[in-house]
Protein backbone atom coordinates (compact mmCIF):
# COMPACT_ATOMS: atom_id res chain seq x y z
CA UNK A 1 0.00 0.00 0.00
CA UNK A 2 0.97 3.63 -0.53
CA UNK A 3 1.69 6.20 2.12
CA UNK A 4 2.55 9.87 1.78
CA UNK A 5 5.23 11.08 4.13
CA UNK A 6 7.60 14.06 3.93
CA UNK A 7 5.69 15.08 0.78
CA UNK A 8 6.77 11.82 -0.84
CA UNK A 9 4.81 8.69 -1.74
CA UNK A 10 6.33 5.48 -0.38
CA UNK A 11 5.29 1.82 -0.45
CA UNK A 12 4.64 0.20 2.91
CA UNK A 13 3.14 -3.06 4.17
CA UNK A 14 0.18 -3.47 6.55
CA UNK A 15 2.41 -2.75 9.52
CA UNK A 16 3.95 0.40 8.08
CA UNK A 17 7.33 -1.12 7.11
CA UNK A 18 8.77 0.22 3.88
CA UNK A 19 8.80 -2.36 1.11
CA UNK A 20 11.21 -0.59 -1.23
CA UNK A 21 14.41 0.42 0.43
CA UNK A 22 15.38 2.56 -2.58
CA UNK A 23 12.63 4.99 -1.55
CA UNK A 24 14.21 5.62 1.84
CA UNK A 25 15.66 9.06 2.50
CA UNK A 26 16.82 10.87 5.63
CA UNK A 27 13.76 13.12 5.49
CA UNK A 28 11.43 10.10 5.35
CA UNK A 29 13.42 8.53 8.16
CA UNK A 30 12.90 11.57 10.37
CA UNK A 31 9.16 11.54 9.75
CA UNK A 32 8.87 7.78 10.38
CA UNK A 33 10.79 8.29 13.63
CA UNK A 34 8.49 11.11 14.65
CA UNK A 35 5.47 8.88 14.10
CA UNK A 36 7.07 6.48 16.58
CA UNK A 37 7.57 9.31 19.04
CA UNK A 38 11.32 9.41 18.43
CA UNK A 39 13.34 12.54 17.75
CA UNK A 40 16.44 11.60 15.74
CA UNK A 41 19.78 12.50 17.35
CA UNK A 42 23.34 11.90 16.20
CA UNK A 43 23.37 8.61 18.10
CA UNK A 44 20.18 7.48 16.36
CA UNK A 45 21.81 8.12 12.97
CA UNK A 46 24.85 6.07 13.96
CA UNK A 47 22.53 3.17 14.76
CA UNK A 48 20.65 3.60 11.48
CA UNK A 49 23.99 3.55 9.60
CA UNK A 50 24.96 0.35 11.41
CA UNK A 51 21.59 -1.24 10.56
CA UNK A 52 21.97 -0.34 6.89
CA UNK A 53 25.48 -1.79 6.84
CA UNK A 54 24.15 -5.09 8.25
CA UNK A 55 21.18 -5.07 5.89
CA UNK A 56 23.39 -4.51 2.84
CA UNK A 57 25.57 -7.41 3.97
CA UNK A 58 22.46 -9.65 4.18
CA UNK A 59 22.92 -10.03 7.92
CA UNK A 60 19.87 -10.14 10.17
CA UNK A 61 19.66 -7.50 12.86
CA UNK A 62 19.85 -8.99 16.34
CA UNK A 63 20.44 -8.01 19.93
CA UNK A 64 23.62 -10.11 19.82
CA UNK A 65 24.78 -8.04 16.83
CA UNK A 66 24.02 -4.78 18.65
CA UNK A 67 26.00 -6.03 21.66
CA UNK A 68 29.05 -6.59 19.46
CA UNK A 69 28.51 -3.57 17.21
CA UNK A 70 30.74 -1.17 19.12
CA UNK A 71 28.19 1.52 18.19
CA UNK A 72 26.02 1.37 21.31
CA UNK A 73 25.30 -0.95 24.20
CA UNK A 74 21.94 -2.62 24.64
CA UNK A 75 20.66 -0.34 27.40
CA UNK A 76 21.34 2.67 25.16
CA UNK A 77 19.64 0.87 22.26
CA UNK A 78 16.53 0.46 24.43
CA UNK A 79 16.58 4.08 25.50
CA UNK A 80 16.98 5.34 21.93
CA UNK A 81 14.13 3.19 20.62
CA UNK A 82 11.87 2.56 23.60
CA UNK A 83 9.41 -0.36 23.59
CA UNK A 84 10.73 -2.84 21.00
CA UNK A 85 14.05 -1.44 19.76
CA UNK A 86 14.58 -4.00 16.96
CA UNK A 87 11.03 -3.51 15.71
CA UNK A 88 11.20 0.28 15.81
CA UNK A 89 14.74 0.78 14.52
CA UNK A 90 14.12 -1.43 11.49
CA UNK A 91 10.90 0.42 10.71
CA UNK A 92 12.68 3.76 10.84
CA UNK A 93 15.65 2.41 8.85
CA UNK A 94 13.27 1.36 6.08
CA UNK A 95 14.07 -2.36 6.21
CA UNK A 96 11.86 -5.38 7.10
CA UNK A 97 11.40 -6.23 10.78
CA UNK A 98 13.09 -9.40 12.11
CA UNK A 99 10.82 -12.35 11.26
CA UNK A 100 10.31 -16.03 11.83
CA UNK A 101 8.94 -18.47 9.27
CA UNK A 102 5.24 -17.93 9.99
Amino acid sequence: MKKVIAQTEINVNEEGYMTEFSQWTKEICECLAEEQGICMTEKHWEVIDYIHEKHNGNEALSIRGIKKSGVINIKEFYSLFPGGPLKKSTLIAGIPKPKSCI
Binding site: E14, E15, G84, L86, K87, K97, P98, K99, S100, I102
Partner: peptide, 16 residues
Protein backbone atom coordinates in the same frame (compact mmCIF):
# COMPACT_ATOMS: atom_id res chain seq x y z
CA UNK B 1 9.44 -14.17 22.10
CA UNK B 2 12.15 -11.71 21.02
CA UNK B 3 10.17 -11.13 17.83
CA UNK B 4 7.17 -8.85 17.33
CA UNK B 5 4.68 -11.67 17.88
CA UNK B 6 4.16 -15.42 18.08
CA UNK B 7 3.32 -15.08 14.39
CA UNK B 8 5.47 -12.64 12.44
CA UNK B 9 4.25 -12.85 8.87
CA UNK B 10 1.09 -11.00 7.82
CA UNK B 11 -0.77 -13.96 6.23
CA UNK B 12 0.03 -16.35 9.06
CA UNK B 13 -0.87 -13.77 11.69
CA UNK B 14 -4.23 -13.19 10.05
CA UNK B 15 -4.99 -16.88 9.55
CA UNK B 16 -3.67 -18.22 12.83
Amino acid sequence: TPLGGAFTKPKATKAL
